[in-house]
């Protein structure tokens, strides 16, 4: 079972997917239309590229930088959050315990993934 398929069935997860760092390929499972998943992939890739650039610049310009490499990011809205690690994204409900549980699971599975899963 792929990482995103496992994520998609976790409690509180609305949908999960993976996107290619280059090109337009993506796969997903969950409560999103195909077009929404395509858009989510484009958005998540753009933010991932941006955080990589920011951590590069951050560490090139400060001593003792704790973000030598950006491994992921989270955006929190009023009802939903987006959690991304490596090239895997998931949309989660803002219910107690969900974000922490999903993040912990993603960290265990994906923290060592330097490029793509």
């Amino acid at each position: 079972m792929s990482v995103y398929s496992e994520l998609a069935v976790m409690e509180g997860v609305i949908a999960a997917g993976e996107y290619a760092y280059r090109g337009d390929r993506y796969h997903f499972k969950g409560q999103l239309s195909d077009e929404m998943a395509r858009m989510a992939s484009i958005m998540c890739r753009a933010t991932t590229m941006s955080t990589h650039m920011q951590s590069d610049i951050l560490c090139a310009n400060s001593d003792n930088c704790p973000f030598e490499e950006a491994h992921g990011w989270i955006v929190r809205g009023p009802q939903f959050s987006v959690c991304v690690m490596a090239n895997i994204f998931c949309f989660v409900q803002n219910e107690p315990g969900v974000l922490n549980r999903v993040f912990r699971w993603m960290r265990e599975r994906l923290m060592d993934a330097h490029e793509m899963v």
Binding site: S33, P66, F67, W73, V75, R76, G77, P78, Q79, R107
Partner: peptide, 22 residues
């Protein structure tokens, strides 16, 4: 575009590093 609400206004952002997050 999608008609799905729930993300705006953005309440926060997290950057995840290897050992630390902000």
């Amino acid at each position: 575009t999608t008609g799905q609400g729930g993300f705006y206004p953005i309440q926060g952002f997290t950057l995840v590093g290897f050992e630390w997050s902000t």
